[in-house]
């Protein structure tokens, strides 16, 4: 094994890692708010809204990420009329796909606070919105943090799917180098270690959040 390959390729691998992290961050930035909206819709009293949001969540959670990627990669140029670049179709895919998962996390966070806190707030003359804002959401967010952190790690792991359409994130960069230098072992082991370090650190953070409860 020739580990020199890794030393030489570090700049490219670093760039790949940054690309993956960037992709993750942008996806989460749009996906989480969308997920919150869908969760609110799901909890609404209006059947048309809650059923639509429920269907949205079920559809995107039943399909694998790769298939959704293929759907958008195929459909978007057709709908928009012109070719779409890889990055755009990736981001649209990730944002919509993961919003379904965020929606579930937000929904169960809110429901974990329970109806009785809602009743307490309403009975003191607060409106529904005020009760959500001051009483339910602060507690829900604290309850959701571990699951949210884990989901962010999952998004980061999901960016490897970009490999399939040739987008140059970490895995793809590594495979290009592996092909060029004919050193797959060193490259893939290194990439595995990099992913491990990032994801494991994230999971430690999630565990910290889990420990913080009201004393």
């Amino acid at each position: 094994m020739d580990w020199n390959v890794i030393v030489v390729s570090l700049p490219l691998l670093w760039k790949g890692l940054l690309t993956s992290l960037n992709l993750t961050a942008v996806s989460i930035a749009f996906s989480f708010p969308l997920g919150c909206l869908v969760a609110m819709g799901r909890l609404s009293h209006r059947p048309w809204l809650s059923n639509t949001c429920a269907s949205f969540v079920h559809v995107f959670r039943s399909n694998p990420l790769i298939l959704i990627l293929f759907w958008f990669y195929f459909l978007m140029p057709m709908i928009i009329g012109s070719a779409i670049n890889d990055l755009t179709s990736l981001i649209v895919t990730f944002v919509i796909f993961f919003s379904a998962y965020f929606a579930e996390i937000v929904r169960s966070g809110i429901q974990s606070v329970g109806t009785r806190q809602m009743q307490a707030g309403l009975s003191s003359g607060l409106t529904h919105v005020q009760t959500m804002r001051h009483i339910i959401m602060p507690q829900a967010i604290r309850a959701m943090l571990p699951a949210l952190t884990t989901q962010c790690i999952i998004v980061f792991q999901g960016t490897t799917v970009a490999y399939i359409i040739g987008y140059n994130e970490l895995l793809h960069s590594a495979s290009m180098i592996a092909e060029r230098t004919v050193r797959p072992i060193e490259l893939y082991l290194t990439v595995a270690v990099i992913y491990f370090v990032v994801c494991y650190s994230g999971s430690l953070l999630a565990r910290r959040f889990e420990k913080r409860t009201y004393s």
Binding site: Q157, Y163, L171, Y188, L189, V191, A192, F196
Partner: peptide
């Protein structure tokens, strides 16, 4: 558990395909 959870499945597949047989 930590090993197999924190590495993306796709990367694991590549390792089983390209790395393990060589080792």
């Amino acid at each position: 558990v930590e090993l197999f959870r924190n590495i993306p499945l796709l990367v694991q597949l590549f390792i089983w395909l390209y790395v393990v047989p060589q080792l």
